[in-house]
Structure formats: structure tokens, C-alpha cells
Amino acid sequence: MTTHALAATLDPVDPAVRSDAKSLAERLHGDTRVETAVRAMLDAVAHGARVVVMQAEEEVTPTAAAEMMGVTRQFVDRLCEDGMLPFRRLPGSRHRRIRVQDVLDAAAKREQRRAGGDAIRAALGV
């Protein structure tokens, strides 16, 4: 099996992209996890959201990781330095690359911590 790098941006600014996304989403009727995920992605594009599709093993820059997480690049740098976000350095360089899956994992952990903090504040009535 050959693997191909997949990185595509579905930009809803293009009316043809929105129309195609709506048409394809309407054709998916199954309830499998794959169909549900693809339908949700296509519905988002059809309604004006910009969707980026990447493979989990692809690598991104700290700036791209920050955009994915909705934080600053400096925060991502701190996560890397603190060992909270695995990365690799490019050979002979100070530049970092971070796997997409590691970014997603870090974002999920961060959201879990935030939700826990919100629950504690709600329980305390703060």
C-alpha cells in the first residue's frame, strides 16, 4: 500500500466548493463513523467554514501548530520546551517540526483541563 501526503484546504470562499460540498454531503446517508465524519466536514464547508484535511503523521511548524490549537506560537514553544509537546529539530537547524497527531493530542488535553476547571468553578459557585 502506498501512502500519499494529504494536505488539502477546502475554502468556502469559492462558491463551487460550497456547492460541491453541499451536494456530496446530501448523498451520504449512512451512519458509519467515516460517513458521519465526512458528512460533518462537508456540511461545515457548505455553511462557510474553512476545513483543512491532514494526515496525523504529517508535520507542521510551531506557527501552524499554534493556529490549529488556537494559541500563540510562543505558547507552543513553551509546550515544546516543557516536554508537553513532542517535536523534532530539522537537521543542522534550530527549526522545529511537530506531528499533527501530537498537536491534536495536546489540544485535547488542554481542552480537558479547561473543562475540568470550569466544572470546579461551577461546583464552587465562582
Rank of each mutant, 00 (worst) to 15 (best):
S19C: 07
T32L: 03
P62V: 12
F75N: 12
P62G: 07
V53P: 05
P62Y: 04
V45S: 04
A46Y: 09
L10C: 13
D11H: 07
L6P: 01
A44I: 08
A122I: 01
A65S: 07
R89M: 04
V34T: 06
S23D: 12
R73K: 14
A106F: 04
T2H: 09
R27I: 01
T72K: 09
D105V: 10
A37V: 09
L6R: 10
D20M: 13
R89Q: 09
R39W: 04
H47Y: 00
A66R: 00
A44L: 05
A123E: 00
R97Q: 08
D11V: 04
D43L: 14
A123I: 00
D102N: 13
R113Q: 11
A7R: 13
V126E: 06
K22R: 13
S19M: 10
A64V: 12
R27T: 11
D105S: 13
R97S: 09
V103M: 06
L42R: 09
A106Q: 10
A65R: 03
F87E: 00
L6K: 10
A40M: 06
D77Q: 15
E35Y: 01
A65Q: 00
A119P: 02
M1R: 08
A107W: 03
R89F: 01
S19T: 12
V60G: 04
Q74L: 12
A46Q: 07
P91C: 00
D105C: 02
V60W: 01
R97F: 02
A16C: 02
R27N: 08
L104V: 15
Q112M: 10
A46N: 05
T36S: 14
R18W: 02
L10P: 00
M1Y: 08
V13N: 10
S93F: 04
Q55F: 03
V51Y: 03
V52H: 04
A64W: 00
Q112W: 08
K22H: 11
A37L: 12
H4M: 09
R97T: 14
G92W: 05
D82G: 09
A107I: 05
E26M: 14
R121L: 13
V13D: 11
D77R: 09
H47D: 15
E57S: 10
A44P: 00
L6T: 14
R96H: 07
G48A: 06
T36Y: 01
H95Q: 12
V53M: 11
A115R: 13
D82L: 15
L85I: 06
F87V: 01
E67A: 15
T3S: 14
L85T: 03
A123K: 07
A106W: 02
T72I: 06
G117F: 04
S23N: 11
M69G: 06
D77G: 13
H47W: 00
T9W: 00
A122Q: 14
A108W: 01
V100G: 09
L79F: 03
A44Y: 14
A119Q: 09
T63F: 04
V126L: 15
Q74Y: 09
T63H: 05
A106C: 15
R88P: 02
L10V: 12
T72G: 13
A122P: 00
V45C: 06
V53C: 12
A40T: 12
L104D: 03
V103D: 04
G92S: 05
L24Y: 10
E35A: 07
V52E: 13
V76M: 10
